[in-house]
């Protein structure tokens, strides 16, 4: 492949990924409202289009035509760049996610690291937005978000390090290649780590907390903080925060799919693998995220931090030690470990 086709391919992928992030956010909002409605024995949106399917488009038009207010006390520069700081890293992380064997914008050897590097910038966006708003609720919310993100990044990274020890690579496509059928999904790979399903659950909880989803949405606890860090944002400024949140949910569930559930590989031999499997697994996990959100009440900040520091971190450290011991005693046949 020569240099110029590579450039065109990358541009096409970037446009596609941005479109995916936007459409996906729009329709996840619709799905969220439907799921929430049915869980609460309501119907959810139904007026705009069949099954309310055109609702996201109407919402989008509404958001874009609204005035973007700039309250008098805010820091104009930081206030404006914060929504972009939340969305851009999420879109950048999509660049290394393999949707199928060849459907990946840029395959790099340290893909896993890249996702985490960009995910860590997301917090900065929340902080800058909360602070730039010059609103005490927004500042409190930003402080909560940071303590939460710092607390949950530790068990998450320890779990990921455990997985990298098993896989022996940080290339996301190679990790998927090592899990050709359901018995070799890393969530069931007991020969590598007897706590593999626990690792999956820790990873999933941490990704819930990192994306500030209920029951961990202390940053935007409506009853106490109005809307948290995006209290002062109107119109598309708020829209970008929302898109960033949903893009981050997709990134988190994609990583869970890739690391533990075989990515785009088919679980059964008679159906070929491909992007459809990847999307099916990702959207199933997203459905679980919504299910959890509308089932459990919001935790307290105290309980949230205790869960991370007193339960998740010790268990993930134990898992790290156990996995290291297992790998030393019986090197994996399938993986590169």
């Amino acid at each position: 492949m020569n240099a110029s086709t590579e450039v065109y391919r990358l541009i096409a992928f970037l446009v596609g990924l941005i479109a995916f992030a936007a459409l996906n956010a729009a329709y996840l909002v619709w799905l969220e409202r439907k799921v929430c409605g049915h869980i609460q024995r309501r119907i959810g949106p139904k007026e705009v289009g069949p099954y309310g399917l055109l609702q996201p488009i109407a919402d989008g038009i509404k958001l874009m035509t609204k005035q973007v207010m700039l309250p008098p006390q805010v820091d104009p520069v930081l206030f404006r760049i914060a929504p972009a700081l939340v969305l851009i890293p999420a879109v950048m992380s999509f660049v290394v996610i393999p949707f199928s064997e060849n459907l990946v914008a840029r395959e790099i050897n340290v893909g896993l690291l890249m996702v985490f590097a960009f995910a860590s910038v997301n917090v900065l966006g929340l902080l800058v937005g909360g602070w730039g708003s010059a609103n005490k609720y927004a500042v409190i919310s930003a402080a909560r978000c940071v303590s939460q993100n710092v607390a949950y990044e530790i068990p998450m990274l320890i779990t990921v390090i455990t997985m990298v020890m098993i896989t022996g690579t940080m290339n996301l496509n190679e990790i998927v290649m090592q899990q050709p059928d359901i018995t070799r999904w890393y969530v069931f790979r007991f020969t590598a780590s007897p706590l593999a399903p626990v690792a999956f659950i820790i990873f999933f909880i941490c990704s819930l907390a990192e994306t500030n989803r209920a029951p961990f949405d202390l940053g935007e606890a409506e009853s106490e903080l109005i809307a948290g860090f995006h209290t002062e944002y109107s119109g598309m400024g708020f829209g970008l925060f929302f898109m960033g949140e949903y893009a981050n949910i997709v990134i988190g569930t994609s990583l869970a799919t890739i690391l533990f559930l075989g990515g785009w590989q088919s679980p059964v031999p008679f159906i070929p693998g491909g992007w459809w499997w990847f999307l099916a697994k990702v959207y199933f996990l997203i459905f679980c995220v919504m299910w959890i959100r509308w089932t459990y009440p919001r935790t307290t900040l105290w309980g949230l931090l205790n869960l991370s520091w007193k339960i998740l971190i010790p268990i993930s450290l134990l898992n790290l030690l156990l996995t290291g011991g297992m790998l030393k005693l019986m090197p994996l046949a399938g993986g590169a470990g």
């Binding site: 860590s120 917090v123 900065l124 902080l127 800058v128 602070w131 500042v139 930003a142 402080a143 940071v146 303590s147 993100n149 710092v150």
Partner: peptide, 8 residues
């Protein structure tokens, strides 16, 4: 993030 948190 740590610096921001410290002077938050």
């Amino acid at each position: 993030v740590a610096i921001v948190f410290a002077i938050m």
